[in-house]
Amino acid sequence: MTSRRPYRSDVSDARWHLIEPVFIAWRARRTGPGAAARVHDLREIVNAILYVNRTGIPWEYLPHDFPPYKTVYDYYAKWEADGTTEQVHDLLRDRIRQAHGRDTHPSAAVLDAQSVKTSCNVAEADQGIDAAKKIKGRKRHLATDTLGLLLAVIVSAASVQDSAGGKRILDEVAAAQPAVAKVWVDGGYNNTVINHGAQLGIDVQVVKRTTTAGFQVLPKRWVVERTFGWLMQHRRLARDYEALPQRSRTMIHWAMANKMSRELTGESTPTWRIDSGEADIAA
């Protein structure tokens, strides 16, 4: 462990203990020239990724007491490409479900989509306009379990309709979570999604808004809305800064891994609305 002063986004010893076996196995699989060199502490690489994820800074603005930002991003990209990041995420999700007395293979899911603006480094071809939300950028299509934990995520141009994205995310859910037999969606998903779900053996049910004036918590659907709230606690996700959509998807996995590891160890995620003294207590 490094001797530097810790940042609030650093993983604690308890949180690192949860995910360390994944990285030990990853390093053991590394072969080829230079693979034997253990220059960088993988825990520090994870800390640097979470620092970017939580604070929203550009990679090149990483503090100097972290490993070089190009090295950190190289690990970030490699772990995305070889599935290591998703493996960490899925490990934590399974442990959360077990802690809640649930089977690791969920039988129900909730779908929704969120449009976000993009930064100037995102290619025009990867963007689109969500006419309903009046947003030019990308759209995150999420499937969560009934605890709000991520089962599948697709990042597309914001111009992709919910129904088209819904069919794609159902395919992802069916492939990754074959036990899912029930899915709840909102009114933005039309009959094509329902019919597509039926072809996959999934019963898709639309949860409609109530006619009551004012804010209403909608049954089943609220859990995915809470998940979007969890993601927004990570400033890197308040806007889509990633040049590649797969990197954007990975940033979502890291945000959820951060949230789940804190829940498993009883640590709260500090909010930006408390002062530094209270933050020390919350951390």
Rank of each mutant, 00 (worst) to 15 (best):
R168W: 13
W184N: 12
A181S: 14
A157G: 13
V204T: 05
G188C: 13
R226M: 05
R221E: 06
L149D: 11
G187W: 10
D186R: 05
I154M: 10
V173R: 08
Q216E: 11
A157P: 00
G166Q: 09
T192H: 09
G148V: 11
G214T: 04
K220R: 12
L170Q: 07
V217G: 00
W184T: 03
I202K: 04
N190H: 10
G148T: 10
A198S: 12
K182M: 14
G148K: 07
R236W: 13
R236D: 14
K220A: 03
W184H: 14
W230R: 03
T192I: 11
T212G: 05
G188N: 13
Q177G: 00
K182G: 03
V155T: 13
V217Y: 00
V155M: 09
L218A: 06
L200Y: 07
W222Y: 14
L149C: 06
A157L: 03
A174F: 09
G165E: 09
R209E: 05
I154Q: 11
A158N: 12
Q216D: 05
I194T: 14
T227V: 04
G201I: 08
A213W: 11
E172M: 05
T212M: 08
S159M: 08
H234C: 15
I194E: 11
V224A: 03
I194A: 12
A152P: 03
S163H: 08
V180C: 11
I154R: 14
R236S: 15
Q161S: 15
L200P: 14
Q177C: 06
R168L: 15
L237P: 02
Q199P: 03
V206R: 15
V183Y: 12
L147C: 10
A152Q: 06
D186F: 05
L237H: 03
L151H: 09
L150D: 08
L170H: 05
Q161C: 01
F215N: 04
A157D: 07
M232V: 02
V224D: 01
K208C: 04
A158M: 13
G165P: 00
Q199I: 05
V223P: 06
G188H: 14
T211D: 08
R226W: 05
P178A: 07
L218N: 05
D186M: 03
Q233T: 08
S159Y: 06
E242L: 11
N191I: 14
Q233C: 08
G187E: 12
R236H: 15
L218E: 04
K208R: 14
G166N: 11
K167S: 00
D203T: 12
L231N: 03
V224Y: 02
D186P: 00
V224F: 02
E225G: 10
Q216F: 02
L170M: 07
V204D: 09
V155A: 11
K208H: 10
V183T: 13
V180T: 06
V223F: 02
G201S: 08
R236E: 12
D203Y: 02
T227Q: 10
K167A: 02
Q233N: 13
L237C: 03
N191H: 12
G201E: 07
P219Q: 01
R226N: 14
I202R: 01
L170P: 12
K220L: 01
R239Y: 09
W222H: 14
T211F: 01
D186C: 05
V173H: 10
D171T: 02
K182P: 00
A181W: 01
V155R: 06
V180M: 11
K182L: 15
